[in-house]
């Protein structure tokens, strides 16, 4: 019988990659300040949040079942996992910052404020996409070494 944790881990990994690719969409669209990309922002932020929530659910089991063994035999892989968790969290909160600033930018008619919020949103999504991609690569590295 397949371990449910193993299934969830696969779902987490695939969701993570999907969200990394989804985050590239607003990161690209919002390079133009006047661009409206509400749906792309909402979907990408939702996806990365779901992937992160699943990762947080799996994390306690990782600590109990895998962490020490990975650090004993391949400390480099263990530290890659640590990097992955930090950068993944960064991707999630920056996606939220991007979504909030984009929605705020759409709601204001004050031109300088709208432009500043649009730049903020673009910056946040570019960073979130970059961090999510690095997280995905590190995730594959760790998962190819050890799994539930």
């Amino acid at each position: 019988m397949i371990d449910p944790l193993r299934i969830l881990e696969r779902v987490h990994g695939n969701l993570g990659w999907l969200s990394a690719l989804a985050l590239l969409h607003p990161a690209w669209l919002l390079r133009r300040r006047e661009r409206r990309a509400r749906l792309a922002c909402i979907l990408a932020t939702t996806l990365v949040t779901l992937a992160g929530a699943l990762g947080a659910y799996l994390y306690p089991d990782y600590r109990v079942m895998l962490k020490q063994d990975i650090f004993l035999h391949a400390p480099g892989i263990g530290w890659s996992f640590e990097r992955k968790e930090h950068l993944g969290l960064g991707a999630i909160v920056l996606a939220w910052a991007g979504l909030a600033s984009h929605l705020a930018a759409l709601r204001t008619k004050e031109r300088p404020i709208r432009h500043l919020l649009a730049r903020t949103s673009h910056l946040a999504y570019v960073a979130a996409a970059g961090l999510a991609l690095i997280t995905g690569v590190l995730g594959i590295l760790v998962a190819s070494y050890s799994s539930f």
Binding site: R83, H86, L87, L89, G90, V93, L94, A97, S101, E110, P112, I113, L116, L117, R119, T120, L123, A124, A127, G130, L131
Partner: peptide, 24 residues
């Protein structure tokens, strides 16, 4: 409002630099 928008932009930059450099 304008100051708030400016500081928010600066804060996001600081956050990006901090979490990226710390994470790596």
């Amino acid at each position: 409002p304008l100051h708030a928008a400016r500081w928010t932009y600066v804060l996001v930059w600081a956050s990006v630099i901090a979490i990226t450099s710390q994470g790596i």
